[in-house]
Amino acid sequence: MNVMVRLVYRNLRANLDKGSLFFELIFPLFFIFIQGAAVSGIVPPFDIGNGRVVSYSLFLAAGAVTLTVINGGTNAGTQLWFDRRHGMFEQILMGPFTRAQYIFSIIITTLIIGMAASILVFVFALPVLSGISITLQAALLTGFALFLGTIFFGAFAITLSVALKSSEAFQIISTVAFFIFLFTSSVFFPVDRAPGYIQAVSLLNPLTYTTDMFRAGLFDAATTILPLEITTLSIEAAIMFTVAVAAFRRIKV
């Protein structure tokens, strides 16, 4: 059997914690069904681009799906962290595998977890998202958004996990970092109506572009800046991936 298939299967079985997965799903669903429903009563429907007017609960449902990408990404760092902590990192590297194969297996596992969790949240959110028709083009755009987002946040978590010495530091710093990503992106609110400093930060934030791409696909709300957003997110994901690989190569055994 193919080396990558074996490694990815092993990563999925060895590192998937059912409790964490449960919360990864519950967290976005909480936003969709509680916050979205509650805030919709005080926020009138608004234009999200291309003349598409949607309710706040629809707006937030799309954001909550991309939020899952961040949680999936954290999994990459956690997997690497546990493998190093429990000696499996060295054990695997002394087996019939290369470092490159191992790191790619972590990335692929993260993609599987991130994409699967996002799709699952999307399926759960379908009652809220009723009336939406997804074309092939929209499916490709939303899929590509989730793919790039997972690559960026998976690579980011891997870099953090290599750089930080303790699991406590990893948990705290990744949580803080992901809160910053979350609240300076367009997950919870349209950033073009936020104060200037939030807008400025959101321009660097890959979660903004992931969410914008996802919404553009889901609601057929593509604006003229969408190609620029796709390009920016692709570049950010490529840079972060390169940084993660470089950091990973420096792990001392």
Partner: peptide, 25 residues
């Protein structure tokens, strides 16, 4: 067999043996 411990924490003893065999094809 390394000096340091190495194991997959969430997997049972027989599951760990089987998974390691799977890794080795």
């Amino acid at each position: 067999v390394q000096q340091q411990e190495s194991y997959d924490q969430n997997i049972s003893v027989e599951g760990g043996l089987d998974l390691y065999g799977f890794l080795w094809d």
